[in-house]
Amino acid sequence: MIRHIVFFSAKRQEDVEAMRAGLTALGTIPHSSLFEVSLNSKVDPLSDEIDVVVYAEFPDEAALAAYKAHPTYAETTATVRPLRELRLSADIVAANDAVQRRD
């Protein structure tokens, strides 16, 4: 499984909601087994420049590549790019030996 995590900051605070709404369209693209778009709660003062987070899970690299090749991905990029200041992305291959904690 691949965890796809993307962090965005808006150029202007008044564009945060438009950016979040635009990124939500990515959830209509097939291929992901989980897809979320969330506003950063900004609880951590060291990371308060991030406004929106996209989190998705894909079964494999082929599914992630198909997601990025989908026309909605290009349309969403064209809509959101002018609104964003920063975009940071990470794709993590989930380890089979990951430990889930339940307290």
Rank of each mutant, 00 (worst) to 15 (best):
residue 83 L to M: 03
residue 51 D to K: 00
residue 67 Y to V: 01
residue 97 D to Q: 11
residue 101 R to T: 10
residue 97 D to R: 07
residue 25 A to F: 03
residue 3 R to N: 07
residue 61 E to V: 12
residue 8 F to Y: 09
residue 82 P to F: 05
residue 12 R to C: 07
residue 49 E to I: 07
residue 27 G to C: 07
residue 11 K to T: 10
residue 64 L to E: 07
residue 88 L to S: 08
residue 14 E to L: 14
residue 31 H to W: 08
residue 60 D to W: 06
residue 64 L to Y: 06
residue 58 F to W: 09
residue 63 A to Y: 00
residue 54 V to P: 02
residue 61 E to D: 15
residue 4 H to M: 13
residue 99 V to N: 14
residue 59 P to F: 10
residue 29 I to H: 00
residue 75 E to H: 03
residue 81 R to N: 14
residue 99 V to D: 15
residue 70 H to L: 10
residue 22 G to K: 05
residue 72 T to R: 05
residue 49 E to Y: 09
residue 30 P to H: 01
residue 95 A to D: 15
residue 35 F to N: 01
residue 27 G to A: 08
residue 4 H to K: 12
residue 63 A to W: 00
residue 7 F to D: 03
residue 26 L to V: 00
residue 79 T to S: 02
residue 21 A to F: 07
residue 98 A to C: 12
residue 28 T to Y: 12
residue 13 Q to M: 10
residue 20 R to C: 07
residue 48 D to W: 10
residue 32 S to N: 07
residue 52 V to Y: 05
residue 88 L to Y: 08
residue 24 T to Q: 09
residue 99 V to A: 15
residue 4 H to A: 11
residue 85 E to S: 13
residue 21 A to E: 13
residue 75 E to L: 03
residue 6 V to K: 04
residue 61 E to M: 14
residue 101 R to K: 08
residue 40 N to G: 01
residue 6 V to C: 05
residue 87 R to P: 12
residue 66 A to L: 06
residue 58 F to I: 10
residue 6 V to S: 06
residue 29 I to G: 00
residue 66 A to F: 04
residue 99 V to I: 15
residue 72 T to P: 02
residue 86 L to I: 08
residue 35 F to E: 04
residue 11 K to Y: 09
residue 55 Y to N: 13
residue 66 A to D: 08
residue 39 L to E: 09
residue 88 L to H: 08
residue 74 A to G: 10
residue 92 I to W: 15
residue 22 G to F: 06
residue 42 K to P: 04
residue 81 R to F: 13
residue 36 E to D: 04
residue 41 S to T: 11
residue 42 K to I: 05
residue 52 V to L: 08
residue 3 R to V: 07
residue 65 A to N: 14
residue 71 P to S: 04
residue 20 R to F: 06
residue 87 R to Q: 15
residue 96 N to C: 08
residue 96 N to Y: 07
residue 49 E to W: 06
residue 96 N to K: 11
residue 24 T to K: 08
residue 93 V to E: 13
residue 87 R to L: 14
residue 40 N to Q: 02
residue 80 V to T: 02
residue 43 V to M: 13
residue 33 S to H: 00
residue 5 I to V: 15
residue 70 H to Y: 09
residue 2 I to T: 06
residue 44 D to L: 07
residue 52 V to F: 06
residue 7 F to S: 03
residue 40 N to Y: 02
residue 99 V to C: 14
residue 4 H to T: 11
residue 1 M to H: 12
residue 9 S to K: 02
residue 79 T to W: 01
residue 18 A to H: 03
residue 60 D to S: 10
residue 49 E to D: 13
residue 47 S to R: 05
residue 93 V to K: 11
residue 9 S to T: 03
residue 21 A to V: 09
residue 86 L to K: 10
residue 51 D to I: 00
residue 86 L to R: 10
residue 79 T to G: 00
residue 51 D to S: 01
residue 40 N to I: 01
residue 20 R to N: 07
residue 17 E to L: 14
residue 79 T to N: 01
residue 74 A to D: 12
residue 81 R to C: 11
residue 64 L to C: 04
residue 41 S to K: 11
residue 7 F to W: 05
residue 96 N to E: 14
